[in-house]
Design a protein around this nucleic acid. Structure first.
Lengths: 410, 410
DNA sequence: TTAATTATCTCGACAGTCGGGAAAAATACC
DNA sequence: GGTATTTTTCCCGACTGTCGAGATAATTAA
């Protein structure tokens, strides 16, 4: 689309807001240096944002030397609120975050055993309303409801297309949330956010991380999740979550919960590992969820040298290694972070993963991706969700100017 | 980066140039409607571009009705020249294209049997110089040299990292072309351009093709190539070529030319098909290139029901089907175009491909990608190369204003 | 020849960024 | 305590970009 001066201002407002997220509270001199905008332009923009109630002046802590002290700007916490909903297998977690990025309230709700899609979404919407009420916040102040789950998500609508619990029954959140009129309701796979968070950390730690670099996060658990994030120019990050766990590993392989044969998950998910260990026939439909204690026990056996257990973890690790090698062939990733409950079995899995990766990587020019570990998956998800949601709110809604007549008023 | 009025003008100049590529020769009014810019702005921009020698007024063919006839603008053909170099297995093709996108000259050069990298690049640079000379064009008028090849290419430098012919010996074109001082020399895998061309055709034919939609081009031959293109907003297309042929198909599979085991190519490339048919052991290093006549003969045998031949094509097609299913899991593609010499065996390959695709696709939400065929691969490559190169030239070099003092002169 | 039609060109209004200088607010020094 | 110094913010004029409307130009139909 063609640009005009309004677009220009929109872009620069968005850029200043992005700078404020990255740098934290800062003066407009700092923002000017960071963004390349002149002090005068930053001043005009911050003045506007302040008048709109987006930013506020913050008391600075201590003076750094002589000269006039800086006036720091920060996000005004109660300008908007973000609700994060994390759907896990047995619980749903609700978090309330203010516009400045501070966690205000959080509670956990247990999931009912055989809930229907409609009551499920209604229930979540009610809990979100309760979360707002507990802090005395009006529903209209909630500008974003960002829901995360495992499974496959519609890229455009707030709808889950496939989950381990509901299978193919689509879960549409649009209706249940239709009275949150000022909120943007969206659903993303949780590994999208994990990848987002890891990419963000990479950029923060390594300023020289060049554009185009790509990382992946592998989540090991009952099912297998994967998020991929690419560092783009101007500090942007593109993250997405392909259905990696249901990528086909081998033709006519063991049957998967999804109904297909030979999915990665069917060999490397927890139920797959147990099935291999106990020699259950590959064509018996597996249980939805196996007790975590069972997997722990199997890991202990494998570590003490029991053949069956060792073999099951070996199979899983080779399957993961092959799948990651395929991922690397299609989307050259420089770094893979392994997380999820299954990360605690990494001692059993890493040798096989590395062997398969290096075996296929040695011939071509490619370097094997570096493998890292991050045990606290939920922290990763929350971190990524918050970054992503606030950045999107800034860019898509706050940066578009509201008060065209600021000058006329002043 | 922050934007200023200069950036703004740059963007709009680029957008007008893009419109002119898409619409062909057109008048202010048309460009204004297409871009959303006001007639006055378009007028300012075209006047500038005309003064810089980028555009010229074109005689319109016939008047459409009453009223003042339109003044059409078009690219001035001799403003810049583009050279396309297509490196194939046995030949190298050189094409000269003017700024308006007209093919001016083309010749083919046979490759010497055991050429060294340095003489190879020198030879190509000499032939490019000869191409320019034949049309009486100064080397400085060549603004882009776009080289295409099979194999793996460095994303940043004009260097080929791996090719079927030279293996891992890197081929760096930078030095051989260092006296083409005003030319931007770049190397891309040929399937990048095939994918670019198919995506462009899709957008032209189906105006409703939404952003984010992704297509793939599969090239079947001695080796297996794949290009992926994504439709982005504002008419942009992102294309890339992953080393799909060397993605691992199965653990401990047949040995590949690249040295690894179980690559897709080792089963589905021509030498792989022949090896399977003749029962050659999987661990014998295959010949670099097998005669095409041999593959044709084998196909005839398979069509008439010979077991060995049928089996070899069956294996190849299942391998391709699985690999495409994996591709689809990671990069949801709505459409796959099959091309290359091997496309003539599609009757033998398609059933297996479809079977594998649908088998893995049935359970999840996914719809199988539509499979199409395009026999003329070289046309696809040339089309994509030209579109891509001219678009990049427009955006990165022509759109940046040269004459800051246009008004002062006029 | 004149009126109608359509397209391009021109001009003033408005909006955004930039650079420089004035004003403000703190510290350092006498 | 008063004054100079330092650093930042704020304000103003210059420049450049887009836009809308009216003036001008070129062609056809009557």
């Amino acid at each position: 689309m063609a640009s005009n001066t309004e677009t220009l201002r929109h872009q620069n407002r968005a850029y200043v807001l992005a700078g404020l997220r990255e740098l934290g509270r800062s003066a407009h001199t700092t923002l000017g240096e960071w963004s390349g905008l002149s002090s005068a332009s930053v001043s005009a923009i911050t003045a506007e944002l302040e008048a709109e109630g987006v930013l506020e002046r913050v008391e600075q802590v201590a003076s750094t030397g002589r000269g006039r002290p800086r006036v720091l700007f920060g996000q005004r916490p109660n300008f908007a609120y973000l609700v994060m909903v994390r759907i896990a297998t047995e619980i749903v977690e609700y978090s309330l975050v203010d516009y400045a990025g501070t966690l205000i309230d959080r509670f956990i709700d247990k999931r009912a055993p055989k809930e229907k899609p409609l009551t499920f979404t209604k229930n979540i919407a009610n809990n979100v309303a309760r979360l707002a009420e507990r802090s005395g916040i009006d529903n209209q102040a909630i500008r974003t409801v960002s829901i995360t789950t495992k499974g496959v998500v519609d890229p455009h609508k707030p709808t889950v297309l496939w989950t381990p619990v509901f299978d193919n029954h689509p879960i549409d959140f649009a209706e249940a949330f239709n009275h949150f009129t000022s909120a943007n309701v969206c659903v993303r796979n949780e590994t999208t956010f994990s990848a987002q968070a890891v990419a963000q950390r990479l950029r923060r730690n390594d300023q020289s991380a060049e554009d185009g670099r790509r990382i992946a996060v592998l989540s090991l658990g009952h099912s297998i999740g994967l998020g991929v994030a690419t560092l783009k120019s101007h500090g942007r990050i593109d993250a997405f979550a392909p259905p990696f766990g249901h990528m086909v590993d081998q033709q006519n392989g063991p049957i998967c919960r999804c109904g297909a044969q030979g999915c990665v998950e069917a060999t490397a998910g927890f139920y797959g590992i147990l099935r291999t260990a106990f020699g259950v026939p590959c064509d018996t439909l597996p249980a939805r969820f196996v007790p975590l204690a069972e997997v722990d026990k199997l890991a202990v056996k494998a570590r003490s040298g029991a053949r069956d257990a060792e073999y099951a973890f070996r199979k899983a690790s080779e399957c993961l290694g092959l799948a990651l090698a395929r991922l690397h062939s299609l989307l050259n990733v420089s770094e893979i972070t392994i997380t999820g409950y299954g990360a605690r079995y990494l001692d059993l899995l890493l040798p096989g993963i590395n062997e398969r990766l290096e075996h296929t990587m040695q011939a071509m020019q490619g370097r094997s991706p570096i493998i890292q570990i991050e045990l606290e998956e939920t922290r990763l998800i929350d971190e990524g969700n918050m970054q992503w949601s606030l950045a999107k709110l800034d860019e898509s809604r706050v940066a578009t100017r509201l008060m065209a007549d600021v000058k006329a008023v002043g």
